[in-house]
Amino acid sequence: MKLLYFAWIRAKIGMAEETVTLPPEVGDVGQLLDWLETRGANFAAALKERGVVKVAVNQEYVGKDHKLGTGDEVALFPPVTGG
């Protein structure tokens, strides 16, 4: 699965993208965030404010209960500030 990080979430994690193999217990977006938090202090810091982390799967906004597939492109980012 391809993971993309943007803005201050990218800065706190320290990378813009990576490809990961999900452990079997990760089936939805909420479980993905739980698992990512355990991968290091950088992830824990970036995802600490769980309420503000926006998630897009295959470039569409999704909720925390969205089911994940192995070929998905998942992006994590803070609330948008364009315009």
Binding site: F6, A7, W8, A56, Y61, A75, F77, P78, P79, V80, T81, G82, G83
Partner: peptide
């Protein structure tokens, strides 16, 4: 359009 764009389009200002 501008109201929706500000809350939906994935841009971030530094």
């Amino acid at each position: 359009l501008i109201d929706w764009l500000k809350t939906k389009a994935p841009f971030w200002k530094l």
